[in-house]
Design a binder for these strands. Structure first.
Lengths: 196, 196
DNA sequence: CCCGGGCGAGAACGGTGGTTCTCAGCGGCG
DNA sequence: CGCCGCTGAGAACCACCGTTCTCGCCCGGG
């Protein structure tokens, strides 16, 4: 409507976005193998031919959507954390954000953990993506720990609490593990971090 | 060889065991959907007809193998933990055992977490099994925590560390998270457990 | 020795899914 | 105005899989 006939800010880019949106939603809701490319086409409104022109294969589509989700997901965490000024508060704010996330409608656990469970044995590309995402998350936490002047080893411990909270909330179906993890994190902070 | 012609301690029970062994190995190695019933038949040496006679469906086979694995897996943890006398040592021994497990050849993470990621969205029976297993594990830890005279809330925190170690070791491909988790657990113990 | 029933091996069936192909329509360019 | 190349819609292709069926074999009982 903004512009009459052409100028849809590149039809191709638009189709790509719709395809990634559809793929991300469907794969997260139902799992990768349970979703057909036809399903992606139907939800995205992008024909099969273009889908394959854009991504080459289903596996590539999975990888592309994981890449995009990685920057958005970590961006959300970082954005929330940055609303706090105190460095220790920031560390705990990670778990506050997890609590919010776990409570969202349609929450079904960590997309990378789920996809790793489903495809980790068959797709090296997916394994790489999961590894990269978890490494990046660990790095993000590492930065926060460093900014708090805490020992680096604390970061790995906090990551384990976060990962544990993600799986446990997904399987049990309650957001409570975020609160448990927060309490444990606070206790570790109060103890001064490992090996001072 | 032990007995000439008959007395195979019930052919049916034997076939059932072989089927469960094959299913457990294959599903863990490759994922459930990547393994066909034909593959199970080939590895188990049990004909398709009998497989369906014994289990009814692939989903039932998955559930049956998860049930059997649950008692064995938790039995292994408990057995290792019981080799220690001191109640605090027992809590930490859980993480020592995880380290051993993570280092085993073919380790690919927690079977329930993986299967939940793969089938959690499509099979209620599998979700129930994962929930039951994780609840039982949490109960086991709860008993150890109680025996150590520690506050009950500590159990949930230790469980998160264990679950986090399982996913992280699986995705990163190293057993190190078990050590990290053990250190965090020790710190929590040293802090006296939550809300004393 | 003959008969019947259960069992194993493998074919068959119905459905699905990733990927490619066909073909008709359409917009742009000469 | 006519042609060309691109595109979308959907069929087609091929492989796979869960489940069931067929059939020939073998075993025990009369």
């Amino acid at each position: 409507m903004v512009l009459p006939s052409n100028a849809p800010t590149s039809e191709e880019a638009d189709a790509r976005v719709r395809a990634l949106d559809a793929a991300e939603g469907l794969f997260y809701e139902r799992g990768v193998r349970a979703v057909g490319m036809d399903d992606v086409r139907d939800r995205a409104g992008v024909p099969l031919k273009r889908l394959y022109g854009l991504f080459g294969s289903k596996e590539d589509l999975v990888v592309a959507m994981l890449r995009r989700r990685d920057v958005r997901w970590r961006g959300r965490v970082t954005a929330h954390v940055r609303t706090h000024a105190d460095p220790d508060e920031r560390l705990l704010a990670v778990f506050d954000w997890l609590l919010e996330w776990f409570g969202e409608a349609g929450y079904r656990g960590c997309a990378w953990i789920n996809i790793f469970g489903e495809l980790g044995a068959t797709s090296d590309a997916v394994v790489d993506e999961a590894r990269a995402h978890k490494a990046a998350f660990a790095r993000d936490i590492g930065v926060l720990v460093a900014e708090a002047g805490r020992p680096a080893a604390l970061a790995d411990q906090l990551v384990l609490l976060a990962e544990g909270a993600m799986v446990t909330s997904a399987i049990t179906g309650t957001p409570a593990p975020a609160t448990t993890a927060r309490q444990a994190a606070a206790a570790l902070l109060a103890a001064g971090g490992p090996a001072p």
